[in-house]
């Protein structure tokens, strides 16, 4: 039972919930960038929550299934076809042996996810099947898929069934201006008051440098409070003495082009962290593409926790409805 990759798309990788627990030794978690779409995909095909799925970006892959199974496409709004006939998104669909899944031109969002009953069966590496392409580990041979690859499908699907469907009210929309919540700190004091306000007032445009490592934005210049740099810090006013970077943290090297670090990013370094995108809002960021706009909406810690609680509750409710 396997999937034959006829066309890999742009940068399609095997991902799961991520390789958690090794951040302190410099290992980023990887894992599906849009966690909501990934988890709902698994629920639709009747998998256990951590089963591995495929994450594509901008261009969907063309995949042939060697045996009948159940699949679901979630995430970005993109036309998906089985043997040339369009299939609904956010719904489980039966495919026959020899069926081919293909994609049309992306309508909105950036990353489609393909969940398959049984999950993608690649070896666990440090507890995860997620691909970390920068160092070539995990996933399928540590890299993005290529034409001709053959992916094994797992056999431990809990309850594969076609026709499960997510309530349309629960399907995320992908506006061309995304709003993500930002917990301000730890080094926001390094920006002038005007610049900190400008950061949250600006509609930032996603540049072509936006991938699983991080998203770089353009839209304004920010100024730092002048100071004599402390021991160990570099000479760029954006530098601080090295520290850990939370996943989702925002830095602005040179005061231009802020970067949000994502699941494949470096775990620490010497740039001031202006704030951190609330974890569940990385899902929204993952569905923005080059040329889209993003606004950072400040929240305090209670606000951030409440955003996370609400999103987890929604996922639990959707899982129960699909069970």
């Amino acid at each position: 039972m396997s999937i034959l990759v006829r066309d890999p798309g742009l940068e399609t990788t095997v991902q799961d919930t991520g390789r958690l627990g090794y951040y302190s030794i410099g290992f980023p978690p990887s894992g599906a960038l849009d966690s909501f779409a990934y988890h709902v995909g698994n629920a639709l095909v009747g998998n256990e929550p951590g089963a591995a799925a495929l994450e594509a970006v901008y261009l969907g892959p063309t995949l042939e299934f060697t045996q009948a199974t159940v699949i679901a496409v979630t995430g970005a709004d993109i036309p998906a076809f089985v043997d040339g006939a369009e299939i609904p998104l956010w719904e489980s669909v039966a495919v026959s042996a020899g069926s081919v899944l293909s994609f049309g031109q992306l309508r909105a969002g950036a990353r489609p996810y393909v969940a398959v009953a049984g999950g993608i069966d690649v070896p666990l590496y440090y507890g995860s099947r997620s691909t970390y392409t920068l160092v070539g580990i995990g996933g399928f041979q540590g890299r993005a898929l290529r034409a001709g690859d053959e992916l094994a499908i797992g056999s431990d699907a809990r309850d594969p069934r076609a026709g499960r469907r997510v309530d349309p009210d629960d399907v995320p929309v992908h506006p061309s201006t995304a709003e993500v919540h930002l917990l301000v700190g730890l080094h926001s004091y390094r920006l002038t008051e005007d610049s900190l306000a400008r950061f949250t007032d600006t509609e930032w445009k996603v540049t072509p440098d936006a991938n699983r490592v991080g998203y770089r934005f353009r839209g304004a210049e920010l100024e730092f409070v002048p100071r004599e740099q402390p021991f160990g810090a570099g000479s760029d006013p954006a530098n601080v003495t090295d520290c850990g970077y939370p996943v989702g943290s925002v830095q602005v090297p040179g005061g231009v082009e802020p970067i949000v670090l994502l699941q494949d990013a470096v775990t620490g370094g010497g740039y001031a962290t202006l704030g951190t995108v609330v974890s569940v809002d990385r899902d929204r960021l993952a569905q923005t593409k080059t040329g889209d706009k993003t606004r950072f909406v400040p929240v305090d810690l209670d606000g951030a926790l409440s955003v996370r609680r609400d999103r987890h509750a929604a996922l639990d409710r959707i899982r129960s409805a699909l069970a």
């Binding site: 742009l10 940068e11 261009l59 440098d209 991938n211 080059t290």
Partner: peptide, 8 residues
């Protein structure tokens, strides 16, 4: 077209 440091 260059995007995400890859060329398509």
């Amino acid at each position: 077209v260059e995007v995400m440091k890859t060329f398509h």
